[in-house]
């Protein structure tokens, strides 16, 4: 007999646009079915700030700054299964398009030397997370168990993946759910 205990699920967005979370909401009325089987831990849906022990973690976005690293590690420590959700988490996506630029030069141009700037200053408040010199997919920082590509993955793709997982099937996305755009 399978354990009928409710599954704990956490979600977060790192260097992403929250589009994957919007797409997650696109499962629409199936959310009701989902909360029959799942309790949400840390997630924008609950506003819980730190992740406790969980069964599944969904990570949207890549890793572009120090805070992203801390949050990602918190999820890895607490989630038995960690899933990369969407193009940015899978391969860096849009934020990684800055990777061929030098970070120092970028900061300088944006905050100091850009046209029309007077008395510019690079923000240095300790509250702000420092940017990494490159943006990384999350599987370059911690071990990741599953990947759901797409920009964003459709609600149907997310639903198929999660229900496969909850029902004990190895998740599969065939045509037309598997998409990179």
């Amino acid at each position: 007999m399978l354990d009928k205990r409710k599954i704990r699920l956490a979600t977060t967005s790192l260097a992403g646009c929250f589009g994957c979370h919007m797409s997650f909401l696109d499962i629409d009325e199936r959310l009701l079915e989902l909360i029959e089987r799942v309790d949400f831990d840390r997630s924008p849906l609950t506003d819980i700030k730190h992740c406790g022990p969980c069964d599944i973690g969904l990570i949207e976005g890549g890793v572009c700054n120090a805070e992203n690293v801390h949050v990602l590690r918190e999820f890895r420590r607490n989630c038995k299964v960690l899933i990369a959700l969407g193009a940015c988490a899978v391969n860096g996506g849009l934020p990684a398009q800055r990777n061929h630029l030098d970070l120092g030069q970028c900061l300088q141009e944006v905050y100091l030397t850009g046209e029309g700037l007077v008395n510019g200053q690079i923000p240095n408040d300790p509250e702000l997370p420092l940017p990494l010199d490159k943006v990384h997919p999350i599987d370059e920082i911690v071990r990741i168990d599953y990947f759901i590509p797409g920009c964003p993955p459709s609600g149907d793709a997310i639903w198929k993946f999660l229900t496969d997982l909850l029902d004990g099937r190895t998740p599969r996305l065939g045509h037309p759910l598997l998409r990179f755009d």
């Binding site: 690293v69 970070l103 120092g104 300790p126 010199d133």
Partner: peptide, 27 residues
């Protein structure tokens, strides 16, 4: 699993540009 690069080193450029050296600016 470990990252292939030094995470703290990846903040060096931002540290230099912001002049920060507080604990939050390091791993």
């Amino acid at each position: 699993f470990e990252p292939a690069f030094d995470l703290d080193g990846a903040l060096a450029s931002a540290r230099q540009m912001t002049g920060r050296d507080d604990p939050g600016a390091h791993f």
